[in-house]
C-alpha cells in the first residue's frame, strides 16, 4: 500500500517535472510569460487520448500529443510575437481560456463536460505499462528526456540567444539575432514537452475532462517555476519535489478529499506570494523574477 502511494507520488513528480522544466524553457530562459502553458498540457492530453481511443498504438499517440502541442505552440507564437510583459501574459491566459472553452464545447470530439473515460494504459511492442511501477519508468524517462533536452538547449549558444532575448530583446536584435524566430522556437519546444506530459497524465489517470486542466494547475506550475528560480533547472527539480510532497500530509489529518484540492492550490499560491516578496530568485538564485 505504502509502496503504491509513493509510486503514485513519484509519477506525479515526473509529470510535473516535465511540465515545469518545459515552462522554464519559455518563461525562465526566454522571458515569455506564457500563462497559457497548461493549454499545451490539455491539448497533448486530449490528442493522445483521442488517438489511443481510436486505436492508435501508445507510442504513436504519445508522439501525436507532442506534435499537436508543438503546432499549437507555433500557432500561439504568431500573434504574440510583438507582445511583451503583461500583454503577453494576458493574451496567453486568454489562449488558455479559449482552449478550455473548446474542450468544454466541442462535444463531437472532446465529449465536452463528460470527458474521455477509459483511456487505455500504455503498451509498447507488446509490453504493458499498466502496472504503476512500469508506468513510473515511462514517466521518469520522459521527465529525464525533457530535463536533458532543455539543459542541452540552455548550454548551447542558442540558449544564450534565448537569455539575451529575455534580458534585452532590443539589444539582441541590434546584434543581429532573430528574436522572433528564437521566441517561436522556444515556445514550440516548451509546448512539445508539455504535450508529452499531458499524454502521460491521460494514460495514467485514464480519464480526462476539461476541468482537469484548470487555473489551479497553472498556479501549480507557475509556482514550481518561480520557486525553483527562473532559468534554474536544478532549482525547479527541487521545487517540484517539495511542492508535490508538501500538501500530502493534509490527506492524513482527516481533511475531506474535496477540500484537499483547493487547499493544495491555496498553499501553492501562498508560497508563490512569499517567494515573490522575499526571494524572487527562488532556489536557483540566478535570475530574478522581474
Amino acid at each position: 500500500m505504502i509502496e503504491a502511494y509513493f509510486t503514485h507520488l513519484l509519477i506525479l513528480i515526473c509529470i510535473y517535472l516535465t511540465l515545469a522544466i518545459s515552462l522554464q524553457l519559455s518563461m525562465g530562459f526566454t522571458g515569455l510569460f506564457n500563462l497559457g502553458h497548461i493549454a499545451f498540457y490539455a491539448i497533448g492530453a486530449y490528442a493522445s487520448a483521442l488517438a489511443a481511443l481510436a486505436g492508435w498504438p501508445f507510442l504513436a499517440a504519445f508522439a501525436a500529443a507532442g506534435a499537436t502541442a508543438a503546432i499549437a505552440g507555433w500557432i500561439l507564437s504568431l500573434p504574440t510575437a510583438r507582445l511583451k510583459g503583461d500583454y503577453l501574459a494576458l493574451a496567453t491566459l486568454g489562449f488558455f481560456f479559449v482552449v478550455n472553452a473548446v474542450a468544454l464545447n466541442w462535444n463531437d470530439v472532446t465529449k465536452g463536460a463528460l470527458g474521455l473515460p477509459g483511456i487505455p494504459k500504455p503498451e509498447i511492442m507488446g509490453v504493458s505499462f499498466a502496472d504503476n511501477t512500469a508506468f513510473l519508468g515511462l514517466a521518469a524517462l520522459t521527465a529525464a528526456a525533457c530535463f536533458l533536452a532543455v539543459r542541452r538547449i540552455a548550454k548551447t549558444p542558442f540558449g544564450n540567444v534565448l537569455q539575451a532575448v529575455r534580458d534585452d530583446e532590443l539589444a539582441a536584435r541590434s546584434l543581429g539575432k532573430d528574436a522572433t524566430k528564437a521566441k517561436a522556437t522556444a515556445l514550440c519546444a516548451s509546448a512539445l514537452f508539455a504535450g508529452l506530459a499531458g499524454s502521460l497524465y491521460a494514460h495514467y489517470i485514464t480519464f480526462i475532462d476539461p476541468f482537469t486542466f484548470n487555473i489551479g494547475e497553472l498556479i501549480t506550475v507557475l509556482a514550481m517555476v518561480i520557486i525553483g528560480g527562473l532559468a534554474s533547472l536544478e532549482g525547479t527539480v527541487l521545487a517540484v519535489v517539495v511542492l508535490v510532497l508538501l500538501p500530502e500530509p493534509l490527506r492524513f489529518i482527516g481533511m475531506p478529499s474535496s477540500i484537499v484540492g483547493p487547499a493544495r492550490q491555496a498553499i501553492y499560491a501562498a508560497i508563490l506570494l512569499l517567494i515573490l516578496a522575499r526571494r524572487p530568485r527562488g532556489f536557483g538564485g540566478r535570475v530574478e523574477a522581474q
Partner: peptide, 24 residues
C-alpha cells in the same frame, strides 16, 4: 521595485488563494 509582471503574478496568486478559500 517589482515589475508590473511580478505584480500581475502576485495578483494572480491572490486570486487563486481567495478562490480556494471560498471553495473550502
Amino acid at each position: 521595485n517589482a515589475s508590473s509582471l511580478v505584480l500581475l503574478m502576485a495578483g494572480f496568486a491572490m486570486l487563486v488563494l481567495v478562490e480556494a478559500a471560498l471553495l473550502i
